[in-house]
Amino acid sequence: MSTFLLLLIIGTFLCLYRVAMGPTPPDRAVGIDTIGVMIVGICGIFGIMTGQDFYLNVAIAWALLSFIGTLALAKYLEGRGFDE
């Protein structure tokens, strides 16, 4: 189980690379969205490792909040020009 956890954390860091280096703002937004979904998986693995079900509450809340955050980022991108 902890191997899977380590691999998922590596994946999260790969996404974080895109957030840090992404040439345009939408690239960063895509990275943030992907990290949000991956953390739901990390919460599921934590749930199996510890046998506590509140990690799944965290997963559900994280999924919904990351969706709302993505929609807010998309609206923000629509509302402005692109000059960077």
């Binding site: 939408p26 937004a29 969706f67 998309a74 991108l77 402005r80």
Partner: peptide, 16 residues
Amino acid sequence: TSPTGSHALARGAHIA
């Protein structure tokens, strides 16, 4: 929610 969010992002990126 994941496909919905992704096409919101794609539309936002194209409009930006």
